[in-house]
Write a protein that binds this DNA or RNA. Structure first.
Lengths: 199, 199
DNA sequence: GAACATCCGGAACGATCGCCCCGGTTACCG
DNA sequence: CGGTAACCGGGGCGATCGTTCCGGATGTTC
């Protein structure tokens, strides 16, 4: 038997946690979430035994939404469209940025599965773009994930300034694109020496 | 009068803190640093009244070194050379990555000054590159700092894999470069719509 | 070598936070 | 409407960590 106030409180806690994690990241105390939800600390721990459980529950739907977004594209430009939507989804979501910035290795099982699915979806998107010739062929799925997490953090730091967000994402997308000069102007891809990545 | 063992212990603490912060970030307990330095916790707090003080002292020389590096270039390619050296300097330095990932706003006064100097040096480097036509003209110093911090975090996550580091930095540098097609192939810069940064 | 200032070490304190527990309460069912 | 079971609240426990303090040790000077 599940009581009506139980599910109501569970939902309240989840909503408060979503907001608190998004605003302050993982550092927010459970008591704050409980207070914001209008319940006691014990109630939070009954529905979500550990803080990690709560954190995973909050992130799970976000990650699932991102996977859906990734799967909605299937051409060479999909990768770049996804990156644009990616920032929108996580705008101001500090918890998501942190989760992506680390590897997402230490998280809960269910979230781990979803996270792996998202990574697979991104890997597919990358492969499609590389086969279509729109993305750099040397980038690996791990590179992409690391870059997305990092840039997400940078966007977060920009604090919602949309033009800064646009420029930062523009840099990422340009960097991910394949940059050979057109066939008319010479036809040779710019050489890239491994230990000297720039210059 | 300053005693010899005092300066020796101060140096030991600083060295231990440098290593500990680089390996584990800010989360490392002071006691661990004290133990690694072979001193008591009280000794640490006499030389560095608060943890923030110690943290700032450790980062100050790193930041100064980066500023020197930035000032050592003065042509259009300097920005990209700097980015390469930047990653090298902070390789495996988690504390530096964290400090750059946030704004560096909440740090100590002296470090704040050095940090501002570094930012100024990077801004100069960016301006030179933009005037030379090698860097995107729309990027601001804030964008550059955010991107460097973010990419540094991504490199840190790559865990020292040099080829991954090279690819990630390559994406950043390519993204920062000016990408107009050569005059022979059309001559128009690719249009960039503001709210749609990618695609 | 003795006196003195300085410094060292680690135990102790207070604050924070995640988690557990129990007395009281509330919702559900017959 | 009464009984029962599930749930709620918040106080409390234990662990962690930054910081302080003081008796004892050590370097320095004359």
């Amino acid at each position: 038997m599940v009581r009506a106030d139980a599910v109501r409180n569970r939902e309240r806690v989840l909503a408060a946690a979503r907001e608190a994690f998004a605003r302050d990241g993982l550092a927010v105390p459970i008591d704050d979430i409980a207070r914001a939800a209008g319940v006691g600390a014990g109630t939070v721990h009954r529905h979500f035994p550990t803080k990690e459980t709560l954190y995973a529950a909050v992130l799970a739907d976000r990650v699932a939404a991102l996977e859906t977004l990734a799967r909605s594209y299937d051409d060479g430009e999909g990768l770049f469209r996804f990156i644009g939507g990616f920032a929108e989804h996580g705008a101001g979501n500090r918890a998501l940025a942190e989760a992506l910035a680390r590897g997402g290795v230490d998280i809960q099982a269910e979230l781990g599965a979803r996270s792996a699915a998202l990574k697979q979806a991104m890997a597919d998107l990358l492969r499609v773009a590389q086969r279509a010739g729109t993305a750099r062929p040397d980038i690996t799925p791990d590179d992409l994930q690391a870059l997305l997490g990092a840039v997400h953090l940078a966007v977060e730091r920009a604090g919602g300034d949309p033009s800064a967000t646009g420029r930062i994402l523009g840099v990422l997308c340009d960097g991910l694109r394949r940059h050979d000069r057109g066939p008319a102007s010479g036809g040779s891809v710019r050489a890239r020496v491994e230990p000297e990545p720039c210059g």
